[in-house]
């Protein structure tokens, strides 16, 4: 096991515990809706944590993949006559395909080309959504029908809380499994030394591509879930600010830490809601808090705190 991390079971256990306790402590529909947003953002952040934390590759346009997932889910019923769930599956597939097409030529190159390319990709996706008004509804956004499963409407804050909560636990479980596998070790290895990884047989370009596609799938899934839950999407889901928020979730929670991605997502989803008391200074306070976290817990919240606990115990 890696030093400074918890075991697979401990992480999943913690997540399940939080998942079970939140509705008991905060049963109001408003709180459940915020918690649902946390789970959705955490799902996207988990994929990005694999890309950034494990493999050391940065995507600055990850909200673009979220947008593809969200808008596919919204547009499928409207334009293709598909049900929302199949539309979401299609959106996830489209995001994976796009990641493959963009990542393939880019990830052969050494350096930060992926960050630049994804930045452009994210802006492009956002632009298309905003400007193709007849198809996407443009800046005003688009409404979704209810999801129906076995003839019944999937609705209500509590139900969506459990759906997205189960989603994030599954996403974390898959991510933890990947970490503890040959591919996971290869990804961590190429993060440290691409040269050394390649001479022991790791196909560096291929592995980067695999983790990039996985991260895109996570984001598109999160986007699709958001559209289904919220039943209304605007181009903001794919915006540049959202991409930066996603990266911030990963960095603030602790790069390379699965639990950290969830904690980071929770913080960046809940804080803006809590900070509305500051009115127009809301963003300034949020920025200040992020800076303070980075100054005092440089490795991120989860690894940083874990490190302190370990140090105190051994002291």
């Amino acid at each position: 096991m890696r030093p400074g991390t918890f075991s697979k079971l401990a992480i999943l256990g913690t997540l399940l515990l939080v998942l079970a306790v939140v509705p008991l402590v905060l049963p109001s529909p408003f709180h459940l809706r915020v918690a649902t947003l946390v789970w959705i953002n955490a799902t996207a952040a988990l994929g990005l944590a694999l890309l950034i934390g494990l493999a050391g590759q940065v995507s600055l346009g990850h909200a673009g993949f979220m947008g593809i997932g969200a808008y596919a889910t919204a547009l499928g019923p409207k334009h293709l006559g598909l049900d929302p769930l199949s539309s979401m599956a299609l959106g996830i597939f489209a995001a994976a395909l796009l990641a493959l097409l963009v990542g393939r030529p880019i990830l052969r190159l050494k350096g930060h080309y992926l960050a630049v390319a994804t930045l452009g990709l994210g802006i492009l996706v956002h632009l298309v959504i905003v400007s193709e008004v007849p198809v996407t509804g443009g800046p005003d956004g688009i409404q979704l029908p209810h999801v129906e499963l076995l003839g019944r409407r999937v609705t209500g804050p509590e139900l969506w809380y459990w759906i997205t909560g189960t989603g994030v636990v599954l996403a974390a479980w898959l991510a933890l499994n990947l970490e503890d596998s040959s591919t996971g070790r290869a990804l961590r290895a190429l993060h440290d030394s691409e040269i050394a990884a390649s001479v022991v047989g790791v196909d560096v370009a291929r592995h980067k591509l695999v983790v990039f596609v996985i991260a895109a799938v996570y984001a598109a899934l999160a986007g699709g879930l958001f559209a289904l839950f919220n039943r209304f999407v605007t181009p903001d889901v794919a915006g540049f600010l959202r991409s930066i928020e996603l990266v911030t979730m990963v960095v603030i929670g602790g790069m390379g830490s699965i639990l950290g991605a969830v904690v980071g997502a929770a913080l960046l989803t809940v804080l803006p809601q809590a900070l509305t008391v500051f009115h127009e200074y809301e963003h300034a306070v949020l920025g200040l808090l992020i800076v303070l976290f980075m100054v005092f817990l440089r490795q991120g919240i989860v690894p940083g705190l874990a490190g302190r606990v370990v140090r105190r115990r051994s002291a």
Binding site: R2, P3, R185, R188, A189, D192, S193, I195, A196, G256
Partner: peptide
Amino acid sequence: EIFFRMSALE
């Protein structure tokens, strides 16, 4: 060229 974020075993 060591993988410095990993243990010796890893």
